[in-house]
């Protein structure tokens, strides 16, 4: 999946979790959770949504690798399915 398409999906899922925010305005390197005020419960819902929508399962030990938009898209593109 190309990066732009992936980002579009990510924005949609984040918007569902934090409807009053504008995920598409995230800068590529800022911390997504801090910027959008997403707590651990909502973050888990985001991981579940990624799994359901993109069929990519992110193990718990990789949570630290997907903190920003850049690192998340890199991770998703490079992760073997």
């Amino acid at each position: 999946m190309i990066k732009e398409e992936l980002e579009k999906n990510i924005f949609q899922l984040l918007k569902k979790i934090a409807p009053e925010t504008e995920p598409s305005e995230l800068s590529p390197t800022e911390n997504i959770r801090e910027a959008l005020g997403i707590d651990s419960y909502d973050f888990l819902q985001f991981i579940i949504a990624l799994d359901e929508k993109l069929k990519i399962e992110i193990p718990e030990q990789d949570y630290g690798k997907i903190t920003s938009l850049n690192s998340l898209t890199d991770y998703l593109i490079n992760k073997p399915k």
Partner: peptide, 12 residues
């Protein structure tokens, strides 16, 4: 590690 993602536990 063994739970499906929907059933993962949170520390809380």
């Amino acid at each position: 590690k063994v739970l499906p993602v929907q059933k993962r536990l949170l520390p809380v």
